[in-house]
């Protein structure tokens, strides 16, 4: 199997951390993976994007023109990259910040999750990326939730390990939101 994913948001939303976490979960599962980041020129608050490809065999291109799943964390990402999702693909949208009412894609499966609200309810709005990662994993099955939770230890710097329980909660909440 091969999964490709594009995540976009603004700097500070943890886009790259979400991509790293999913990638590391794939490493734990002994899969092959590529993680390709991209940034705007601003050092703070600019656009942040990444492409993740997870494969049992060879990854091939780390660059994907039309990914089968896209995660949009803010309005600008949807406006700029809304056309990117493959026909018939999946869009996971942070409905706390993104209004897709005027989006003209009717071929997609669109999953709207109020990620900011969920993160806030769990105590920290910075966990939007964890909610997104949990939602993606649950929706596609690219990696297991257990692997994601296990990957936190490797991806977060030592000093942030105290936040792991909260992050685990956020991942699970994201996964649960997919089913709702």
């Amino acid at each position: 199997m091969k999964y490709d994913l594009f995540i976009a948001g603004f700097g500070g939303q943890g886009v790259l951390l979400a991509g790293n976490l999913l990638s590391y979960a794939a490493i734990i599962e002994e899969k092959n993976v590529s993680f390709l980041p991209a940034y705007g020129v601003e050092k703070r608050g600019g656009a942040a994007m990444c492409t993740v490809v997870i494969a049992d065999g060879e990854v091939g291109s780390p660059v994907i023109g039309r990914p089968s799943t896209c995660v949009y964390l803010n309005q600008t990402s949807l406006e700029r990259y809304g056309a990117k999702v493959k026909d018939g693909g999946v869009a996971i949208i942070n409905s706390s910040l993104v209004d897709d009412s005027s989006w003209d894609r009717d071929d997609l499966e669109i999953i709207r999750i109020p990620m900011n609200r969920i993160a806030m309810e769990l105590g920290d709005p910075r966990m939007v990326n964890m909610v997104a990662a949990g939602a993606y994993a649950a929706k596609t099955g690219a990696v297991a939730l257990e692997s994601l939770e296990q990957a936190l230890k490797s991806v977060l710097p030592e000093r942030n390990h105290r936040f792991i329980p909260a992050n685990v909660q956020a991942i699970r909440a994201g996964a649960a939101a997919v089913g709702r």
Binding site: N20, S23, I27, N32, V33, S34, F35, L36, P37, V59, P62, V63
Partner: peptide
């Protein structure tokens, strides 16, 4: 930068 910035196993 694709190969340089990319992360892989």
């Amino acid at each position: 930068s694709v190969v340089g910035q990319m992360k892989e196993a």
